[in-house]
Each structure stands twice: as C-alpha cells, then as structure tokens.
Lab assay of single mutants.
Amino acid sequence: MPSETPQAEVGPTGCPHRSGPHSAKGSLEKGSPEDKEAKEPLWIRPDAPSRCTWQLGRPASESPHHHTAPAKSPKILPDILKKIGDTPMVRINKIGKKFGLKCELLAKCEFFNAGGSVKDRISLRMIEDAERDGTLKPGDTIIEPTSGNTGIGLALAAAVRGYRCIIVMPEKMSSEKVDVLRALGAEIVRTPTNARFDSPESHVGVAWRLKNEIPNSHILDQYRNASNPLAHYDTTADEILQQCDGKLDMLVASVGTGGTITGIARKLKEKCPGCRIIGVDPEGSILAEPEELNQTEQTTYEVEGIGYDFIPTVLDRTVVDKWFKSNDEEAFTFARMLIAQEGLLCGGSAGSTVAVAVKAAQELQEGQRCVVILPDSVRNYMTKFLSDRWMLQKGFLKEEDLTEKKPWWWHLRVQELGLSAPLTVLPTITCGHTIEILREKGFDQAPVVDEAGVILGMVTLGNMLSSLLAGKVQPSDQVGKVIYKQFKQIRLTDTLGRLSHILEMDHFALVV
C-alpha cells in the first residue's frame, strides 16, 4: 500500500459497493488471473465517493441489488447463522422517566444476534452475496479491517462455511474481542490505534497488504460494500417497522461504517417519512454534520465500534436529520445504567446512543415513540467499562463513588512517597548505550525526554532486548525507535489509591 493515498477510480455505471474482489474501477472485475494482476490496485480507499443510485421515491424494481426479506425461524435451526436477525424490541421503562421523557422509549437489542452484535447481519450478508456472485469459493481466505464486531461476525460465518479468516484490528480494541476471535479460529493482526486510516500501518493498510500477498484472499470491505446497508434496509428496518406496527417518530443510532443508519433510515424514509433520524458520533470522530460539531482538541476516545477519521463510502449522511456528539463518560455511564436499571447487557456504544436519545427525544410528546439501536453486548468489555477499576483509572468514576473498604494508605498523596527525580535518556542515544546505562543503574525503564525536557515516551529494558533479539533494531539504532509513546501519567497530588489502580493494569506510571 502506498504512503500517498491515490484516488480510487470510478467506473461508468453500476453501484460502487459490489461485493467481491475490487477492480481499479471499484466494481467486480472478471477475466484471467493475468488481467486481474495487471488491473487490481494495491488498495482502494474506504472513503471513495459513493456511486449508489438510491433515491427517495425511486421504484424498488430499479435497484441493481439482490434483495432479501426477513424469514421466520424454524423450530430447529440448521446452523447458528440462522440465529442472525429477528432481534427483540424491548421497552426501556426507567431511564426515559428518569430523564423526563414523555414518549415511549424502545430498544432494538442487536446483541441477541448469534455473534453478539449488529455486525453479524452485514457479515453474513457480505459472505452470502460474495458466494452468490462467485467471488468467494471453498478454501478462500477472508481478510477484514475491523474494530472487532464485524470480525467476530465474519469469523463466526467463516467457521460454519469453512473459510480461512484473518482479522486486522487496532490495538485499542478489547482483549475479549481478541479472545472470541481466536476461539472462532480467526487469525488476528493488531495495528497502532493512532495510525491514520490511509497510513500503511493502519488496520485498513495492513489488511490490503495481506490481501496482495495471500492468494485467493478477499477483503469484503464493510466500508464500501453495498451488502452492509442492504442488510439493514432489507431486514433490520423491516423488523423495526413490523415490531412497531409502522408507528415510530424517531430513530437514534450510533454511527461507525454508517451501514446501520443508512440502511434503516432509507427504508424508514420510504415507509415512515415523518420519522426523524438521529445520528450519534463520538467526540474525536469526524462523521457528524455540520462540520463545526467535529471541532475539538480530542483525537482519541475509548468507546469502541463507532466514529472514524474518514467518511466511509457506505455512509449516506443525507438521510440523517440531526447529529449529536457523545463523550466517553456519558457513554459508559449510560451503558452501566442500562445494565443495572433495565437488565440490558449492552456495550458502550449503546450507552452513547441512549445518552443522546434522552436529549433528542425531549421534543417528542406522549403517545409518540423513539427507537434506539443497541449494537453489541457487554461480553466484549468485561475488563473495560464493566470494571470499576478501569473506570477509575480512566477518570470516568471517582473514588467516592465506590463504597468498598480501602487499605490505610489509600488516600495518601503520591508526594508522600518522597520520590527522587528519575533517570532520563535522550532519544538520540543508541539502544546499546541505553541498555548499558539501565543495567549500570539497576533500572528496568526510563523516560525519554528531548533537550527541552519534554517527555516523549518510555523505554524499557525488556522491550529493547526483545527488539534486538527479533532483529527489529540494532544496538547502533537510536533509542527513539523503541519508545512507548502511550503511558499513564500521575500527579504528586493524586492518591496512592489512584496509582494502585493504574499499576494493576500497566507496568509503570510516570509522575509529573
């Protein structure tokens, strides 16, 4: 994948999101292997301009796509893939009243899908469409860049269908997702969380590099694949309309690839034109409109599966009536509230959605109805927002919020430890010299600072030695090549209790 991002070429006709291997024109390309080798690009942008032909009021008969309808489940399912879809609609009884809503608040519980998330729908649909058009064949390999849930859905379907599955996901995604993927037989590649989507090191860039190296491999490409919004247009939206008897006044959905909100909203605009569509985008993402909503100094966020630093091709923002931004604290607070007060075992993005819903639905009156999409299960986040310690460490809970008995030293300040200034190293000294210094002084790690004293990161003896043994660096290389740029900081005025929580999850903390 090139470091400079080429513009994806656009073909003359058809839909841009065809499933299957992508040609340089962004659509299915038939021909000899030699032709494909000559024409197939190194990668295709996940934010390529959409060429979708959908228009409100256009006859369904003019759609270029294969459409399906929700099917009634048999008493005995032939395999677990038949437990994807037909998820329950559940009334939220307490939270709406707590925040003064007059309307009825309903939750579409997508964590009841077989793999635990709304992404099971698009995973199965992308595979079925690729099999139907002859792209996927027995023994082929599926590769997908994902925040985890699409990966789980694909790995689940691949396990049943017999495909090899490789999932490329950023490091910030939970260990629970990784464990589930491994249990399903998927191979996992992790990428830096802070890598831009168009960087060769991003999950998108690495996935395309693997595709170019592995024979008979395919990126189904949830960011561009029409099967993504079509899955929701054909099934999720129809289920909502049936469950609500066609009567709903507002739908609120958090947005990642945009397939969920695009597919549902398009069908609702056709069948229930008075329904307002509300999009939820986390602070630090750029999906919301108008652009002024996205202006923030924050560039990272903890909530998973929603928000991006690019506009995915499948996201149709014209069908969203209003956007709201959400933050991590309210997302996790509301997710825990949904679990504790409503018994809905949902993930953090569901918290984002409901946090926005109780604001947006203030305009609705008694007798009206708001539906929220709860995308995934708490299963993926047992060591994250479900953990009091994690919430404390991230600053989303305060010590006084917890009532468990603490040891005698818990409320003492870090400054009472009488710490001395640490050994520091410059980023320009060599790895070999740094190892000598650390061994001589008896230290395992040291902060790396520039000549102005600005902290650049941390270097550890173990990481340097393993990097040297693996051949990633040489003793003569500058130590700046092996620094940890993500590390926890703590102030002298913070409590030892807070430091204790940090050290339970990290090997060190830097006192500043």
Rank of each mutant, 00 (worst) to 15 (best):
D86Q: 10
H65K: 07
S117P: 04
I261E: 01
P64T: 02
E62V: 07
D140N: 03
I84K: 09
E187F: 06
M169E: 01
D133C: 07
A226W: 08
P192A: 04
S175H: 10
S32Q: 11
N93W: 01
T193W: 08
T235Y: 15
D86K: 10
A107K: 02
K137N: 13
C165Q: 01
L210F: 07
R58D: 12
C109F: 06
S19R: 07
S199E: 06
Q55S: 15
F99D: 05
T5A: 04
I142N: 01
H67T: 08
G258F: 00
G153D: 01
N212C: 13
L28G: 10
C15R: 03
P2H: 12
A183D: 04
T146I: 02
T135L: 14
G31V: 12
I143D: 00
Q7C: 12
E270G: 06
I92N: 01
G26E: 10
E187D: 15
G151L: 00
F99A: 13
L136M: 08
P74S: 12
R58N: 09
I166S: 08
F112N: 01
T87V: 02
L101S: 01
K177Q: 03
G11A: 15
N228C: 00
M126K: 06
V168C: 06
D198P: 07
L156D: 01
C109W: 06
V204Y: 10
A114R: 07
C244G: 02
R182A: 05
D234W: 03
A265L: 02
R45Q: 11
Q55N: 15
E40T: 11
D129R: 04
I143G: 04
K83E: 10
H203C: 04
P138M: 07
E40P: 11
E131W: 00
M169C: 02
V160R: 15
K30Q: 11
K98H: 11
R224W: 03
G139S: 10
L101I: 06
K97P: 07
D86C: 07
P49C: 09
P170G: 04
Q222Y: 00
R121D: 02
K211A: 11
R132N: 13
E144C: 02
E110A: 02
K271D: 04
K172Y: 03
R121H: 01
G57L: 04
E34N: 03
L181Q: 00
G116H: 13
E171S: 05
S73E: 06
Y163Q: 01
